[in-house]
Amino acid sequence: MKDWLLQLQKVSKIFGGIHALSEVSCTVPRGEIVGIIGPNGAGKTTLFNVITGAYLADSGNVLLDDQFVTNWAPYRIVRSGIARTFQNIRLFPSMTVWEHLLVAQQHSGSIFRRLLPTAWADPAACERAEEVLDFFDLTAVRDREARSLPYGIQRRVEMARAVTMKPKLLLLDEPVAGMNQEEAENIRQLMLRLRETGLAILLIEHDMNFVMNLCSYLYVLDFGILIAEGSPTEVRNNPVVLDAYLGQDADA
């Protein structure tokens, strides 16, 4: 049996009678990159919101490391090891890159310790932030405010902020949306390097080509239903998948 990090068992989410997710089951093995693809409105982001506790699942289970984390409060799920990024970047506009990496490390220190300069009170946090800054090649923009950074770099900062928390699983919601070829390739390389560190990644992507050489396994979601799964090659040649994508294109 494989070493599953994340398991979803028949997760359903209903919004006012509409089945946003219908009994979706999927798994992410430790240290691998798994993709969820599907047309717009297929329920991909809803799935992320259920995993991270932003939405409550109406039925089904979410397990991380064989522990049930279904419908836990978002901060508990983060602490248990799932960090995410957002489809529309959500940074703190007037905080610097460095501050983003520190604020992501909220240790439950005493109130007095937390009122001292972080460099004295928590050198470990500074060390971790330094390490991540270096990994994501953000040292040059360390003291820039988030809002003054180009879009591509903002995406990297958001990923870096999530990684700073030392998650076991990273959820990336369309990390290359709106990027040019070069920027997208940059992010792809980053993801491969993150995988080498042992981090598992669950990736939402709209563009099938991007996930082809990246993911070890793919799930295809359409109207809240898993319509196919398998290796990228299997999925690419699956007539049901082609239908979902082509059908959507024909409508568009």
Partner: peptide, 25 residues
């Protein structure tokens, strides 16, 4: 500006939901 508490305050001021996701109480 300089302490962990202060940064958390600013993070909550700028985006409360994301700050909570980062474990800010």
């Amino acid at each position: 500006q300089k302490t962990s508490t202060g940064r958390a305050l600013r993070a909550v001021a700028e985006n409360r939901e994301v700050a909570r996701l980062l474990g800010v109480s």
